[in-house]
């Protein structure tokens, strides 16, 4: 029975990750590739703090704050750049963060990781069993869902979507574009951080390999499948991609083959979705696609040289 609870916990954790990634990529249009690194920063922050005796709820909050601060700092140089360059520079930051995780042995024990992270506990109640932890994770998920939905539907969210659609027009209307982009990255990072905190206190062991580019691509797949720029879509995508590889567990194949198939599965789905249903299952608005596919953006770009 706790097998199902385990799946649900992961749906919650990845749900938070997908929803917050969606905020930066789908709603703010910032092609940000550092999300998995923020996930890691939150996990390590929370783990290290609780390992030195800080109570869980405080570590949890610090995970949010520290990840958010990193998000903000990275946004400063990153949001000055356009499109592909933004993606590349955020990618560079993510790799540096991972390199630090692997090499600052004094802090993170490098590739050996941090074992023995205490299970989450609030006011003396320990979330020892999986179902108990699920309740905690679900509550955090619901709060995340509500907050981000509110942000997206607020005037702030509207401005963010406008910036995504046409930055120049937004500036001409008096919007300080960099400020909004920084906020979007900050918030996205913060929520990735709390997902990290939950992750750390559930698995009780973390190491840098959980926070690499491959994880990020998994998160991207979730929002592509579920629907970019759709909060319920992100959650749906997370659920689908967590559940889908599960049947493999029962096939008694060697673990490296299972891992390979799992990867082929989600990357295959990602590619298929992009080719056939790029708006995902729930994405009603045409977000990834530019308006006139024929006289397209890229041909115009090429012509301008």
């Amino acid at each position: 029975m706790s097998y199902f609870a385990n799946i649900l916990v992961f749906i919650c954790i990845y749900g938070i990750l997908a929803i917050s990634l969606n905020l930066t990529i789908g709603f703010a249009g910032i092609f940000n590739l550092t999300h998995a690194a923020f996930f890691g920063i939150g996990a390590y922050t929370s783990a290290l703090l609780t390992l030195t005796g800080v109570p869980f709820w405080l570590s949890f909050i610090c995970a949010f704050l520290i990840a958010a601060i990193f998000g903000f700092l990275i946004s400063l140089p990153a949001t000055r750049l356009k499109g592909i360059y933004l993606a590349i520079v955020t990618f560079g930051f993510a790799e540096i963060i991972i390199a630090v995780m692997k090499n600052w042995q004094g802090l993170t024990r490098g590739p050996l990781g941090l074992p023995g992270i205490p299970k989450a506990s609030l006011f003396g109640f320990k979330f020892a069993s999986t179902w108990e932890f699920f309740v905690l994770a679900a509550v955090v998920l619901i709060i995340t869902y509500v907050i981000i939905s509110k942000i997206v539907n607020s005037p702030f969210g509207r401005t963010m979507r406008a910036i995504r659609d046409d930055e120049i027009a937004a500036k001409a209307l008096g919007k300080n574009v960099m400020k909004y982009k920084s906020y979007a990255m900050l918030i996205g990072a913060g929520f990735a951080g709390i997902a990290g905190s939950l992750f750390a206190h559930y698995i009780t062991f973390i190491d840098p390999s959980s926070f690499t580019l491959t994880e990020l691509i998994l998160m991207l797949s979730m929002i592509v499948v579920g629907g970019i720029a759709s909060v319920p879509g992100a959650l749906l995508g997370a659920a689908i991609l967590v559940i889908l590889p599960e049947p493999l567990r029962f096939l008694y194949l060697p673990s490296s083959i299972v891992a390979a198939i799992r990867q082929m599965l989600f990357s295959g789905i990602l590619i298929a979705m992009l080719l056939f249903k790029p708006n995902g299952i729930l994405g009603e608005r045409r977000l990834l696609l530019k308006k006139n596919a024929k006289s397209s953006w890229f041909i115009k770009k090429l012509w301008r040289g």
Binding site: P155, R158, T159, R161, A162, R164, D165, D166, A169, A170, L173, K175, R285, R286, L287, K291
Partner: peptide, 13 residues
């Protein structure tokens, strides 16, 4: 204009 936003939203911005 902001293509994915409604006429009203464009104005409100």
């Amino acid at each position: 204009l902001f293509p994915q936003l409604t006429v009203l939203e464009n104005m409100l911005l």
